[in-house]
């Protein structure tokens, strides 16, 4: 827990738009230790996913860079596995084959066929999916798909696990279940984890540190909160814990006081009041086009 593992050094990224470059991130600095669980939290569109994609190597930082074990990384690699928000399993492959797809390029020539099979089954066992090895994603529930997604990432034996709102699309009960599984797995394997979340409780429960991001454009790290709750953590015991609620309050204050997001509910309009009525009935994206 003491060794510097992953560093984001003044990372900035510009996206080209017809109106000139749009600066999404500016001067993001973050140092992550070996085995640490870090959450990124912030309002929608603040660039959390962009940070994760830069670490994953899917985007290239315009400024600064990502350093893993003293080496700069700018392309995807098996040591940084990603768990995607919408599971992103290949619908035409079974749970087993989906994990296999990730395992093969990593362990080709290092493991025999039998070892490889054992390893794939072991990883699906970690996420409690042994009962559905040969089912395709459309036969699995949302939570089960996400479990397979996690198994696929874990099976690549990554040093860093990158999770992009992994439980965002799940119902509350399934989510709690998977959070417990994730804590258990991280406790066993000791991977470094970076997780994006919208959920304040999730962030406090799972993380060693919570990185709170300011609103874009040119978003950056606003505050970093150290969560010093003892592990293993139990969600029921923590529900009435004052320390836990203190952390929770701190994150909430950052999000809803300091970085209060002012979403324009009404739209820039022409003078005619009749049109205003029409605009209210359309969704925000549509009304933007109207404006």
């Amino acid at each position: 827990m003491s060794q510097l593992h992953l560093e984001l050094s003044s990372v900035g990224i510009d996206f080209p738009t017809p109106k000139g470059p749009f600066s999404a991130l500016h001067d993001v600095n973050l140092k992550i230790m070996q085995g640490e669980f870090v959450s990124l939290i912030g309002h929608s569109g603040c660039g959390k996913s962009t940070v994760l994609n830069i670490v994953a190597g899917l985007y290239q930082a315009t400024l600064g860079g990502v350093i893993l074990n003293g080496r700069e990384v700018n392309e995807p690699g098996p040591e940084r596995a990603v768990v995607f928000q919408n599971h992103s399993l290949l619908p035409w492959l079974t749970a087993y084959q989906n994990v296999e797809l990730g395992v093969k390029p990593v362990f080709k020539g290092k493991k025999t066929k039998a070892e490889m099979r054992e390893w794939i089954e072991h990883n699906l066992e970690l996420v409690h999916m042994t009962h559905a090895l040969h089912k395709r994603p459309d036969e699995l529930s949302g939570g089960m798909k996400q479990r397979v997604g996690i198994a696929r990432a874990l099976a690549m034996q990554p040093e860093v696990l990158l999770m992009d709102e992994p439980f965002g699309a799940l119902d509350a009960l399934t989510r709690a279940h998977l959070q417990d599984s994730l804590m258990e797995i991280q406790n066993t394997l000791g991977n470094t984890v970076i997780m994006i979340t919208h959920d304040v409780d999730e962030a406090v429960l799972l993380s060693d540190r919570i990185v709170m991001m300011t609103n874009g454009p040119a978003a950056t790290v606003g505050e970093i909160l150290d969560v010093k709750l003892a592990r293993p953590r139990n969600r029921l015991a923590l529900a009435d814990d004052t320390e836990y609620n203190g952390y929770r309050g701190a994150v909430l204050r950052f999000l809803y006081e300091k970085q209060k997001k002012v979403e324009p509910i009404t739209v820039k309009r022409t003078e005619k009041p009749a049109e205003q009525f029409a605009v209210e009935n359309t969704s925000i994206t549509e009304s933007k086009q109207v404006a």
């Binding site: 994953a56 190597g57 899917l58 995807p76 690699g77 098996p78 940084r80 596995a81 990603v82 995607f84 919408n86 992103s88 290949l90 797809l101 990730g102 390029p105 990593v106 696929r152 690549m156």
Partner: peptide, 13 residues
């Protein structure tokens, strides 16, 4: 696009 990202992260040939 998601599946293409998966392919890149898994480093498929």
């Amino acid at each position: 696009k998601d599946l293409i990202n998966v392919s890149r992260v898994l480093r498929l040939s």
